[in-house]
Write a protein that binds this DNA or RNA. Structure first.
Lengths: 193, 193
DNA sequence: AAATCCATGTAATTAGTTACATGATTCG
DNA sequence: CGAATCATGTAACTAATTACATGGATTT
């Protein structure tokens, strides 16, 4: 019915009403970890969704030229979101530029590539630490019918993903460091996390 | 210099010369696992890259209206690829529709959502099995200066990713099955793979 | 006074998908 | 003889980014 961005907006509005600005810049934690959009994409999308009856808005006198709009999800929007949530995701092909660089690793300078993977590793370690901090604020797994279950489930996914990425970066750095030295297949340790 | 698609094409042509058709449909294993494009995107890109001197082509009498073109990477193309390989990847924001659905899980029907994650789980298990098959054809880790190191590195990434995804899907199914029953935080087993 | 934040929009461009268009060869 | 495969291209459209444009309120 709407684009995936539309549903991303609906998941945010289902939690609490927001302005387009808030949607755009608080497309940081946790939503921004798995879906992002700029305000230039969000504002037109909100207009379409108002026209489709999925969201409504209310003008409030916020700063700026007095034209702050607070958007809320409508009953129709909530129904659409509920239906969408259980439909299979449209298989968007994975595009992983770092994997592509790894695929071309054999003709690159190993030391330079190792530096690149080191920087990526540190970035993923930073993200993992931030996710772990957030996880620490949960006392046990929320029930699957509670709002915070969504937060927790997405966080679980993020932590698992960062762990995978960290393991791969470490392995790459190790391999690139061990230039020319003969390597044994590391047996049971292969792909171990 | 070129788009990322251009570099994806160069990584393929650096291994062996190919026609546009072969590039398009053999953007299956292993390249297709982390970068894909349709022929309608590949043909114009090849034309641009010929103009930029990154690839060259040779007409050969293949089937069809005799106009099969075999593209090869040029010295300039190889240099560009070498440089690109060690540059930091442009952070393209992650867009994960399944994580988005998980984030909206609290207002969806748990049984239906579990079915969805079950289907995803099976898909990832199929892929993992295919990757493991490919991995079995390697006798140890190739040296980082050999062409097959690229294959192996990308495969490692793929296997690790599928393992992460499988673990998350299993956890989601478990949580969605345990409707309403009180859940203990599964302690040390949290996010365990 | 300048910078930053809050706030909303439009325009231009790039990337990517789907559909349209053509045509020879090979296999059943 | 029809379907699938090999082969190359263009056109239309959707999604997303970057840049342009405006302007009040708050902080330094």
């Amino acid at each position: 019915m709407t684009s995936t961005l539309g549903y991303a907006i609906l998941t945010a509005l289902a939690r609490k009403p927001r302005s387009g600005y808030e949607l755009a810049c608080s497309m940081g934690r946790p939503l921004g970890y798995f879906w992002t959009a700029r305000h230039s994409q969000i504002h037109p999308e909100l207009q379409r969704m108002v026209a489709a009856g999925l969201v409504s808005f209310e003008q409030v006198p916020g700063p700026g030229p007095q034209r702050k709009k607070i958007y809320s999800i409508t009953g129709k929007g909530r129904d659409a979101l509920r239906e969408w949530a259980v439909e299979p995701p449209q298989a968007r092909p994975e595009r992983d530029e770092l994997a592509l660089k790894a695929y071309a690793a054999w003709l690159a300078d190993p030391a330079e590539l190792a530096k690149l993977f080191q920087a990526q590793l540190e970035e993923h370690e930073r993200r993992l630490a931030a996710y772990e901090d957030e996880r620490a604020s949960f006392a046990g797994v929320p029930g699957s019918d509670s709002q915070s279950f969504g937060d927790y489930a997405a966080l679980w996914c993020g932590i698992s993903y960062e762990n995978h990425r960290i393991a791969w970066c470490r392995w790459m750095i190790e391999q690139l460091g061990a230039e020319r030295a003969p390597r044994a297949a590391s047996g049971a340790a292969w792909c171990e996390m």
